[in-house]
Simulated assay, not measured.
Amino acid sequence: MTSLQAFHKIKDLQDRDKIAKQKIYQEQVDRFESVATELYEALKEKENAEEKFHEELRETKVRAQNFILHEQYIDQLNKKILNLQPRVQQARSVMETAHDNLSSAHIEVKKFEKLIEKKLTQHEDWLKAEESKAMDEVSTRQYLNYKNR
Rank of each mutant, 00 (worst) to 15 (best):
N78G: 00
V109H: 08
N66C: 04
R92S: 15
Q22F: 12
F112K: 12
R87A: 02
E38V: 10
V109S: 03
A105E: 10
K11C: 14
E41T: 00
H8A: 09
Q85G: 00
Q5I: 01
K44Q: 15
S93I: 00
D12Q: 15
A91T: 03
A42F: 06
I81E: 07
V94G: 03
E47I: 00
D12R: 10
Y73E: 09
E56C: 02
L82Q: 14
E108D: 13
Q89P: 01
K46N: 08
I68R: 09
E113C: 04
E59A: 07
V35C: 01
E51M: 06
K79C: 06
H8T: 01
E47Y: 02
E41L: 08
Q22H: 14
Q90N: 09
Q85D: 08
K114T: 00
L84V: 07
Y40Q: 13
Q65F: 12
S103Y: 11
Q89N: 09
V94M: 05
T97N: 11
I24T: 08
S93K: 12
A98D: 04
D15I: 03
E51Y: 05
I116V: 09
A6P: 00
Q85L: 07
Q89S: 13
Q90G: 04
Q14Y: 13
A36N: 07
F7D: 14
R58P: 04
K11E: 15
H70K: 09
E51F: 01
D30A: 12
K111R: 10
A49L: 11
M95A: 03
R87P: 00
R92H: 11
A105F: 07
Q14D: 14
E71Q: 09
V88Q: 05
L69I: 13
I107Y: 01
E51N: 10
K79A: 14
N66R: 04
V35W: 02
R31N: 07
I68Q: 10
F67L: 07
A98G: 02
K114H: 11
L69T: 08
Q89I: 00
H70M: 10
E59K: 12
H70S: 05
L39V: 09
Q65M: 08
N48W: 01
R58K: 14
